[in-house]
Design a protein around this nucleic acid. Structure first.
Lengths: 350, 350
DNA sequence: ATAGTAACTGGGAGCGCTTCCAATCCCACG
DNA sequence: CGTGGGATTGGAAGCGCTCCCAGTTACTAT
């Protein structure tokens, strides 16, 4: 309603602008009595500080940027995106920061990057990039804006990131399938240009290698983290008769499940199946999905904390944070030839 | 890198700050030659204007707020959320605006609302509220900040909104099921506190009423738009032997599907099923889901356009925008007793 | 009392931009 | 060659806040 300024409040409270500012920012050196008086005026006139003026004067807007690459087709069908956002926003809420959101659409990429780099606006940026060579990374570095990436960066050691150990998690899942006795284990990979996809493939290969098994080209089908790609990949795998399939995401695993159902293959009797992520729906597929649980929400929260820390200490060394995953064993991986017990939903802590 | 100001560029280009400002903002009254010179300097020093200073001086930050109510449990499992965001962000990208995002968590609600109402920061707000009595609405009105709600407001005619005709869409879907010959049509409703849920229930009742059928309490089960609630609701419906079920969302329909599968009921032979939304996965359930398609992404884009219009014309009357839906007929609704043809994916334009 | 010190308070100078408004320039016209 | 008026340009006044510094007040110790 009324557009009061600091000055107005000051006049009403019979003090100076500076004193009101001190009270608002909870600074010391204000007499308790004065503070009371100002507080009362603040309340009475329902004063809201002007965030922009404040930001200009102080140089910090308390706003963080959050950037998602549009090049990821799974972004709008996977709950990954909303869950991650939730984690970040909750953390921001709790620490009185706000968030600006961008999707870098290729056709507007330059403009989007310009917006993100606008001076004064953002205190720092979280890049949910996962892409191999996202131009936003270079732009942020050139501009000197603090940022954290969700998903490790393969080459540049100066970049702070938060991630799970995709390679080892995948390796353990495949090792588990091997322990169950499966030998023709196929994989449906994520996109080539996403680091998580490449890492999970590496883990798959490592597990096979450790067991003395040579990977077979026909047992590796590339997907792009979408359901449809999982479906198509499974169809390509079928002629090579896998006895188990490790899909690099739960979403692709459901696609594989659909393909298997269509040709009358039973899971896990004919083909065992495992996914990655432990999305909410993974417990409700038929059969429920064995998978690797990654703490998506926590990933967002830790990214937030890391960024805030980075903003406060601009010259500190880069932070790297690997969060733990756990295997979630459900019916889709079956009991294997060993008859190993899995339990309804037993979990293995890594 | 270098933190140049307008003044610096002006000096370099041998003109005044004002002129540089004019060039940047593409204003007339600059001699073409001067403009060239300034443009060159701008380019050479890679000048980025300070968005905050600009915002303070001009009173417009070109930032929109986007508010989601956390009270909606489906928010993080339904693709509705990301698709809507996508629609809004694409529109913003194309029109050189940015977006700030908030989830109003009940425990931080006051603080969140304060952040949103901060003076100077936002030019306007899009509320993806759908809730019956969201306090943010009253707060925005009191503050006089332009805003648009996605989902109609049941009582206040001064509020601008964008929506689909939930009531009629639901009515048509149920009428379609009636035409197929189903008579014991049950419904799984959305949450009571969401207007869309209430509207779809009304449409269900209207269709039955138009056909002279009295609704039966046992055939109405309340859900909350989540898969789990659809599953539970279906279990409650089973004893009442419906021959068809209209779920108020595709997500709940998949829950119902799971419950039906568990007790060995075939869809559509034993129970026909219809959903609402036409989420990407609806075409891939087993059987594929008959549903009402609503243009979620477009909803976001139109909300954006409406808001921008509202910001430009603060005194214009409220805008109300109803986007069309269409019935998407797939296998889950069956052929009914009439043997009506549905085709693999025939659509009916409303 | 009185100096000395600590606790407060107010004023002013910005933050980097927009936006008037007055000043200057330039050219066609007389 | 002078002159009016539109086209350009520069200067100054903010936008509403923070933050520094000097000034004022209020005590304590002597």
């Amino acid at each position: 309603m009324s557009d009061l300024t600091l000055e107005d409040i000051a006049k009403r409270a019979g003090v100076s602008r500076s004193t009101v500012s001190r009270v608002i920012n909870n600074q010391p050196d204000v007499h308790p009595k004065t503070r009371q008086r100002v507080l009362a005026a603040l309340q009475r006139y329902d004063y809201q500080p002007n965030a922009v003026a404040r930001g200009l004067a102080s140089g910090r807007m308390r706003i963080l940027g959050l950037v998602f690459p549009m090049g990821v087709p799974a972004l709008f069908t996977d709950p990954y995106f909303p869950i991650l956002i939730h984690g970040i926003l909750s953390a921001c809420n709790a620490h009185d920061r706000s968030v600006m959101l961008w999707l870098t659409e290729p056709e507007h990429e330059c403009r989007t990057i310009r917006q993100i780099l606008q001076r004064g606006l953002l205190d720092g940026v979280i890049v949910a990039s996962m892409l191999m060579d996202d131009p936003i990374i270079a732009a942020l570095q050139a501009r000197g804006l603090p940022f954290v990436v969700i998903g490790r960066h393969p080459t540049d050691a100066r970049i702070s990131y938060v991630d799970v150990d995709n390679r080892n998690s995948a390796r353990e899942m495949v090792a588990y399938l091997l322990r169950l006795g499966y030998r023709r284990i196929a994989t449906i990979t994520g996109s080539r240009n996403m680091i998580a996809g490449a890492d999970r493939l590496e883990g798959y290969l490592a597990a096979l290698g450790a067991c003395g098994i040579n990977s077979e080209a026909g047992l590796i089908a590339e997907g792009d983290f979408t359901e449809a790609s999982g479906y198509a990949a499974m169809q390509r795998l079928l002629p090579h008769v896998p006895d188990a399939v490790f899909a690099a995401s739960d979403t692709m695993a459901t696609g594989a499940l659909r393909a298997l159902r269509e040709v009358g293959k039973r899971v896990p009797e004919d083909v065992a199946l495992a996914g990655f992520d432990d999305m909410p729906f993974a417990a409700r597929t038929e059969p429920p999905l064995t998978t690797v649980r990654q703490p998506i929400q926590r990933l967002g929260a830790v990214a937030f904390e890391t960024l805030v820390d980075l903003i406060a200490n601009p010259n500190a060394p880069p932070r790297r944070n690997i969060l733990p995953t756990e295997l979630v064993l459900r019916a889709s991986s079956g009991l294997g030839s060993q008859g190993e017990k899995t339990g309804a939903e037993s979990k293995t802590r890594r």
